[in-house]
Protein backbone atom coordinates (compact mmCIF):
# COMPACT_ATOMS: atom_id res chain seq x y z
CA UNK A 1 0.00 0.00 0.00
CA UNK A 2 1.57 3.26 -1.09
CA UNK A 3 1.09 6.13 1.37
CA UNK A 4 -0.33 8.29 -1.46
CA UNK A 5 -3.11 5.74 -2.00
CA UNK A 6 -3.92 5.78 1.68
CA UNK A 7 -3.83 9.57 1.78
CA UNK A 8 -6.30 9.86 -1.11
CA UNK A 9 -8.62 7.36 0.54
CA UNK A 10 -8.41 9.05 3.96
CA UNK A 11 -9.46 12.36 2.42
CA UNK A 12 -12.56 10.63 1.01
CA UNK A 13 -13.26 8.61 4.14
CA UNK A 14 -13.51 11.60 6.46
CA UNK A 15 -16.48 13.25 4.67
CA UNK A 16 -17.99 9.87 3.81
CA UNK A 17 -18.00 8.59 7.40
CA UNK A 18 -19.51 11.82 8.70
CA UNK A 19 -22.50 11.27 6.44
CA UNK A 20 -22.85 7.57 7.22
CA UNK A 21 -22.74 7.47 11.02
CA UNK A 22 -22.75 3.93 12.36
CA UNK A 23 -21.88 2.32 9.00
CA UNK A 24 -20.27 -1.11 9.21
CA UNK A 25 -16.59 -1.69 8.46
CA UNK A 26 -17.57 -4.25 5.83
CA UNK A 27 -19.75 -1.83 3.91
CA UNK A 28 -17.05 0.85 3.86
CA UNK A 29 -14.54 -1.75 2.67
CA UNK A 30 -16.84 -2.75 -0.17
CA UNK A 31 -17.53 0.83 -1.26
CA UNK A 32 -13.84 1.73 -1.33
CA UNK A 33 -12.60 -1.54 -2.79
CA UNK A 34 -10.26 -2.47 0.08
CA UNK A 35 -10.09 -5.21 2.75
CA UNK A 36 -11.97 -4.60 6.05
CA UNK A 37 -8.58 -4.78 7.82
CA UNK A 38 -7.44 -1.79 5.77
CA UNK A 39 -10.50 0.24 6.83
CA UNK A 40 -9.65 -0.42 10.50
CA UNK A 41 -6.05 0.57 9.79
CA UNK A 42 -7.28 3.80 8.13
CA UNK A 43 -9.40 4.65 11.19
CA UNK A 44 -6.37 4.02 13.40
CA UNK A 45 -4.58 6.76 11.49
CA UNK A 46 -7.53 9.14 11.51
CA UNK A 47 -8.04 8.96 15.28
CA UNK A 48 -4.83 11.01 15.60
CA UNK A 49 -5.81 13.57 12.99
CA UNK A 50 -7.76 16.80 13.32
CA UNK A 51 -7.41 20.49 13.96
CA UNK A 52 -3.96 21.64 15.01
CA UNK A 53 -2.84 22.09 18.60
CA UNK A 54 -3.83 18.52 19.41
CA UNK A 55 -5.80 19.47 22.53
CA UNK A 56 -8.63 17.19 23.59
CA UNK A 57 -11.65 17.99 21.45
CA UNK A 58 -9.61 19.14 18.50
CA UNK A 59 -8.93 15.72 17.08
CA UNK A 60 -11.50 13.74 15.11
CA UNK A 61 -13.70 11.71 17.44
CA UNK A 62 -13.92 8.00 16.77
CA UNK A 63 -14.07 5.09 19.20
CA UNK A 64 -11.45 2.76 17.77
CA UNK A 65 -12.39 -0.07 20.16
CA UNK A 66 -15.96 0.03 18.95
CA UNK A 67 -14.68 -0.11 15.37
CA UNK A 68 -12.50 -3.14 16.18
CA UNK A 69 -15.01 -4.99 18.38
CA UNK A 70 -18.46 -4.09 17.07
CA UNK A 71 -17.45 -3.26 13.50
CA UNK A 72 -19.38 0.00 13.45
CA UNK A 73 -17.95 3.46 12.83
CA UNK A 74 -19.20 6.65 14.44
CA UNK A 75 -17.08 9.55 13.23
CA UNK A 76 -17.49 13.09 14.62
CA UNK A 77 -15.86 16.47 15.14
CA UNK A 78 -14.53 16.54 11.57
CA UNK A 79 -16.26 19.61 10.12
CA UNK A 80 -12.92 20.86 8.84
CA UNK A 81 -13.02 18.05 6.25
CA UNK A 82 -16.74 17.93 5.58
CA UNK A 83 -16.34 17.70 1.80
CA UNK A 84 -14.08 15.61 -0.43
CA UNK A 85 -11.22 17.07 -2.43
CA UNK A 86 -11.88 18.03 -6.04
CA UNK A 87 -11.27 15.28 -8.57
CA UNK A 88 -7.92 15.13 -10.30
CA UNK A 89 -7.98 16.06 -13.98
CA UNK A 90 -7.54 12.47 -15.20
CA UNK A 91 -10.31 11.22 -12.88
CA UNK A 92 -12.71 13.98 -13.87
CA UNK A 93 -12.12 13.49 -17.59
CA UNK A 94 -12.39 9.68 -17.39
CA UNK A 95 -15.77 9.93 -15.68
CA UNK A 96 -16.97 12.66 -18.06
CA UNK A 97 -16.18 10.60 -21.16
CA UNK A 98 -17.78 7.47 -19.66
CA UNK A 99 -20.89 9.44 -18.78
CA UNK A 100 -21.07 11.04 -22.22
CA UNK A 101 -21.12 7.56 -23.75
CA UNK A 102 -23.87 6.48 -21.36
CA UNK A 103 -25.86 9.58 -22.32
CA UNK A 104 -25.37 8.83 -26.00
CA UNK A 105 -26.38 5.19 -25.59
CA UNK A 106 -29.47 6.04 -23.59
CA UNK A 107 -30.71 8.25 -26.40
CA UNK A 108 -30.21 11.35 -24.28
CA UNK A 109 -32.62 10.34 -21.53
CA UNK A 110 -33.57 13.14 -19.16
CA UNK A 111 -31.79 11.58 -16.15
CA UNK A 112 -28.61 10.97 -18.18
CA UNK A 113 -28.52 14.52 -19.54
CA UNK A 114 -29.15 16.13 -16.17
CA UNK A 115 -26.52 13.94 -14.47
CA UNK A 116 -24.00 15.03 -17.12
CA UNK A 117 -24.95 18.70 -16.76
CA UNK A 118 -24.55 18.57 -12.97
CA UNK A 119 -21.21 16.81 -13.25
CA UNK A 120 -19.90 19.34 -15.78
CA UNK A 121 -21.05 22.10 -13.48
CA UNK A 122 -19.29 20.68 -10.45
CA UNK A 123 -16.08 20.03 -12.42
CA UNK A 124 -16.01 23.56 -13.74
CA UNK A 125 -15.31 23.56 -17.46
CA UNK A 126 -12.93 20.62 -17.77
CA UNK A 127 -12.12 19.67 -21.37
CA UNK A 128 -12.06 15.86 -21.51
CA UNK A 129 -9.70 15.91 -24.56
CA UNK A 130 -11.21 12.57 -25.54
CA UNK A 131 -14.35 11.93 -27.55
CA UNK A 132 -16.13 8.73 -28.45
CA UNK A 133 -18.52 8.51 -31.39
CA UNK A 134 -21.30 5.97 -30.98
CA UNK A 135 -23.32 4.92 -34.02
CA UNK A 136 -26.56 4.48 -32.16
CA UNK A 137 -29.28 5.27 -34.67
CA UNK A 138 -32.20 7.55 -33.90
CA UNK A 139 -32.24 8.86 -30.29
CA UNK A 140 -35.99 8.22 -30.03
CA UNK A 141 -35.39 4.53 -30.84
CA UNK A 142 -33.00 4.24 -27.88
CA UNK A 143 -35.50 5.92 -25.59
CA UNK A 144 -38.30 3.64 -26.77
CA UNK A 145 -36.08 0.58 -26.26
CA UNK A 146 -35.03 1.67 -22.79
CA UNK A 147 -38.69 2.24 -21.88
CA UNK A 148 -39.59 -1.21 -23.25
CA UNK A 149 -36.73 -2.80 -21.27
CA UNK A 150 -37.91 -1.14 -18.08
CA UNK A 151 -41.56 -2.03 -18.66
CA UNK A 152 -40.75 -5.54 -19.99
CA UNK A 153 -42.76 -5.03 -23.12
CA UNK A 154 -42.26 -6.82 -26.41
CA UNK A 155 -41.19 -4.54 -29.27
CA UNK A 156 -41.72 -5.00 -32.97
CA UNK A 157 -39.10 -3.53 -35.21
CA UNK A 158 -38.30 -3.12 -38.86
CA UNK A 159 -34.70 -4.22 -39.08
CA UNK A 160 -32.52 -3.72 -42.09
CA UNK A 161 -29.64 -6.13 -41.76
CA UNK A 162 -26.23 -5.58 -43.27
CA UNK A 163 -25.45 -6.29 -46.89
CA UNK A 164 -27.87 -8.25 -48.97
CA UNK A 165 -30.66 -9.08 -46.60
CA UNK A 166 -33.97 -7.31 -47.02
CA UNK A 167 -35.74 -5.75 -44.06
CA UNK A 168 -37.21 -8.11 -41.49
CA UNK A 169 -39.84 -7.45 -38.84
CA UNK A 170 -38.80 -9.34 -35.74
CA UNK A 171 -40.72 -9.20 -32.48
CA UNK A 172 -38.25 -9.29 -29.61
CA UNK A 173 -37.98 -9.14 -25.82
CA UNK A 174 -35.39 -6.39 -25.25
CA UNK A 175 -33.06 -6.84 -22.27
CA UNK A 176 -30.03 -4.57 -22.54
CA UNK A 177 -28.47 -1.69 -24.47
CA UNK A 178 -24.78 -2.03 -25.08
CA UNK A 179 -21.96 -0.51 -27.13
CA UNK A 180 -19.27 -2.55 -28.83
CA UNK A 181 -16.63 -1.03 -31.10
CA UNK A 182 -18.53 2.20 -31.51
CA UNK A 183 -21.85 0.61 -32.41
CA UNK A 184 -24.83 0.44 -30.07
CA UNK A 185 -26.78 -2.82 -29.87
CA UNK A 186 -29.89 -4.04 -28.13
CA UNK A 187 -29.58 -7.56 -26.77
CA UNK A 188 -32.93 -9.31 -26.99
CA UNK A 189 -34.55 -12.69 -26.76
CA UNK A 190 -35.97 -13.46 -30.16
CA UNK A 191 -38.85 -15.97 -29.78
CA UNK A 192 -38.97 -16.78 -33.51
CA UNK A 193 -35.36 -18.04 -33.28
CA UNK A 194 -35.56 -19.23 -29.68
CA UNK A 195 -32.23 -17.51 -29.06
CA UNK A 196 -30.52 -14.31 -27.89
CA UNK A 197 -29.67 -11.88 -30.65
CA UNK A 198 -27.97 -8.50 -30.84
CA UNK A 199 -29.52 -5.89 -33.12
CA UNK A 200 -27.49 -2.89 -34.21
CA UNK A 201 -29.44 0.24 -33.33
CA UNK A 202 -28.51 2.19 -36.44
CA UNK A 203 -30.02 -0.63 -38.54
CA UNK A 204 -33.43 -0.31 -36.91
CA UNK A 205 -35.69 1.49 -39.35
CA UNK A 206 -38.84 1.60 -37.25
CA UNK A 207 -39.82 0.48 -33.80
CA UNK A 208 -42.92 0.25 -31.68
CA UNK A 209 -43.87 -1.14 -28.29
CA UNK A 210 -46.59 -3.78 -28.41
CA UNK A 211 -49.14 -4.51 -25.68
CA UNK A 212 -47.52 -7.87 -24.94
CA UNK A 213 -45.38 -8.12 -21.80
CA UNK A 214 -42.70 -10.71 -21.11
CA UNK A 215 -40.95 -12.29 -18.16
CA UNK A 216 -37.19 -11.74 -18.47
CA UNK A 217 -35.39 -14.96 -19.33
CA UNK A 218 -32.31 -16.25 -17.60
CA UNK A 219 -29.07 -16.71 -19.45
CA UNK A 220 -28.42 -13.43 -21.22
CA UNK A 221 -24.72 -13.81 -22.05
CA UNK A 222 -22.81 -11.44 -19.76
CA UNK A 223 -19.98 -10.43 -22.04
CA UNK A 224 -21.06 -11.35 -25.52
CA UNK A 225 -18.56 -9.07 -27.20
CA UNK A 226 -20.06 -9.64 -30.62
CA UNK A 227 -22.35 -11.91 -32.53
CA UNK A 228 -19.30 -13.49 -34.14
CA UNK A 229 -18.49 -15.35 -30.95
CA UNK A 230 -20.75 -18.29 -31.63
CA UNK A 231 -19.95 -18.54 -35.32
CA UNK A 232 -18.44 -21.91 -36.11
CA UNK A 233 -17.70 -21.48 -39.82
CA UNK A 234 -14.44 -20.04 -41.07
CA UNK A 235 -13.34 -18.76 -44.46
CA UNK A 236 -9.73 -18.29 -45.44
CA UNK A 237 -8.85 -15.85 -48.20
CA UNK A 238 -5.52 -15.38 -49.94
CA UNK A 239 -5.19 -11.65 -50.64
CA UNK A 240 -2.83 -9.30 -52.42
CA UNK A 241 -0.93 -7.05 -49.97
CA UNK A 242 -2.99 -3.96 -50.91
CA UNK A 243 -5.98 -5.59 -49.19
CA UNK A 244 -4.24 -5.84 -45.83
CA UNK A 245 -6.77 -3.31 -44.46
CA UNK A 246 -9.46 -5.98 -44.29
CA UNK A 247 -7.77 -7.53 -41.26
CA UNK A 248 -8.18 -4.20 -39.53
CA UNK A 249 -11.73 -3.62 -40.69
CA UNK A 250 -13.42 -6.99 -40.25
CA UNK A 251 -13.25 -9.36 -37.31
CA UNK A 252 -10.61 -11.94 -38.20
CA UNK A 253 -9.44 -15.02 -36.36
CA UNK A 254 -6.07 -15.34 -38.06
CA UNK A 255 -3.74 -13.33 -40.28
CA UNK A 256 -0.49 -14.46 -41.81
CA UNK A 257 1.70 -12.42 -44.16
CA UNK A 258 3.96 -13.92 -46.82
CA UNK A 259 6.24 -12.26 -49.39
CA UNK A 260 3.61 -11.68 -52.08
CA UNK A 261 0.36 -12.54 -50.37
CA UNK A 262 -1.42 -12.43 -47.06
CA UNK A 263 -3.78 -15.03 -45.67
CA UNK A 264 -6.69 -13.95 -43.53
CA UNK A 265 -9.26 -16.17 -41.81
CA UNK A 266 -12.73 -14.74 -41.12
CA UNK A 267 -15.53 -16.02 -38.93
CA UNK A 268 -18.49 -16.42 -41.28
CA UNK A 269 -21.95 -15.64 -40.00
CA UNK A 270 -23.74 -16.71 -43.20
CA UNK A 271 -22.74 -17.96 -46.66
CA UNK A 272 -24.23 -14.77 -48.10
CA UNK A 273 -21.85 -12.68 -46.00
CA UNK A 274 -18.89 -14.58 -47.43
CA UNK A 275 -20.14 -14.08 -50.99
CA UNK A 276 -20.62 -10.35 -50.36
CA UNK A 277 -17.06 -10.11 -49.06
CA UNK A 278 -15.71 -11.68 -52.24
CA UNK A 279 -17.76 -9.31 -54.39
CA UNK A 280 -16.46 -6.38 -52.37
CA UNK A 281 -12.79 -7.33 -52.52
CA UNK A 282 -12.74 -8.11 -56.26
CA UNK A 283 -9.26 -8.56 -57.74
CA UNK A 284 -7.58 -8.48 -54.35
CA UNK A 285 -8.73 -12.03 -53.68
CA UNK A 286 -6.40 -14.61 -55.20
CA UNK A 287 -7.54 -17.71 -53.32
CA UNK A 288 -10.67 -18.91 -51.49
CA UNK A 289 -10.81 -21.83 -49.08
CA UNK A 290 -14.42 -22.66 -49.99
CA UNK A 291 -15.09 -23.38 -53.68
CA UNK A 292 -18.84 -23.05 -53.25
CA UNK A 293 -18.45 -19.48 -51.97
CA UNK A 294 -16.24 -18.61 -54.95
CA UNK A 295 -18.73 -20.05 -57.46
CA UNK A 296 -21.65 -18.30 -55.79
CA UNK A 297 -19.75 -15.00 -56.04
CA UNK A 298 -19.10 -15.62 -59.74
CA UNK A 299 -22.82 -16.29 -60.25
CA UNK A 300 -23.81 -13.08 -58.48
CA UNK A 301 -21.27 -11.07 -60.48
CA UNK A 302 -22.62 -12.51 -63.73
CA UNK A 303 -26.20 -11.68 -62.67
CA UNK A 304 -25.15 -8.14 -61.82
CA UNK A 305 -23.39 -7.73 -65.18
CA UNK A 306 -26.69 -8.46 -66.91
CA UNK A 307 -27.86 -5.04 -65.71
CA UNK A 308 -25.09 -3.41 -67.71
CA UNK A 309 -25.86 -5.03 -71.05
CA UNK A 310 -27.42 -1.76 -72.23
CA UNK A 311 -25.93 1.71 -71.68
CA UNK A 312 -27.74 3.76 -68.99
CA UNK A 313 -29.07 6.38 -71.39
Amino acid sequence: MKSSEQLTRLLKLVPYLQQHQGISVGEVAQHFGVAPRQVVSDIEVLQFCGLPEGFHGDLFEVDIDEVRDAGHIFFRNADVLARPMRMRLEEATSLLVALEVVVETSGGSEAALSALAKLRDVLGGVDPAVSVAVAAGAPEHRQVLQAAIDARRVVEMTYLGSGRRSASRPEVEPMRLRVVDGFAYVDAWTPARSDWRSYRLDRIEALHITDATFTPREGLPENATSWFDDVAQRLELELTPDADWVAEYYPVTHRHAGADHIWVTFPVASPQWAVSLLLRLGDSVTGVSDGNVAQAAAGEARAALAHYADPPD
Binding site: H31, P84, L95
Partner: peptide, 16 residues
Amino acid sequence: AAQQTVDALETLRAAG
Protein backbone atom coordinates in the same frame (compact mmCIF):
# COMPACT_ATOMS: atom_id res chain seq x y z
CA ALA B 1 -9.25 5.34 -17.23
CA ALA B 2 -11.35 2.49 -15.75
CA GLN B 3 -9.73 2.88 -12.31
CA GLN B 4 -9.78 6.67 -12.62
CA THR B 5 -13.54 6.55 -13.21
CA VAL B 6 -13.99 4.39 -10.11
CA ASP B 7 -11.87 6.87 -8.13
CA ALA B 8 -13.97 9.76 -9.44
CA LEU B 9 -17.18 8.00 -8.41
CA GLU B 10 -15.69 7.43 -4.94
CA THR B 11 -15.27 11.19 -4.66
CA LEU B 12 -18.96 11.65 -5.48
CA ARG B 13 -19.76 9.00 -2.89
CA ALA B 14 -17.72 10.92 -0.32
CA ALA B 15 -19.72 14.01 -1.29
CA GLY B 16 -22.92 12.25 -0.24
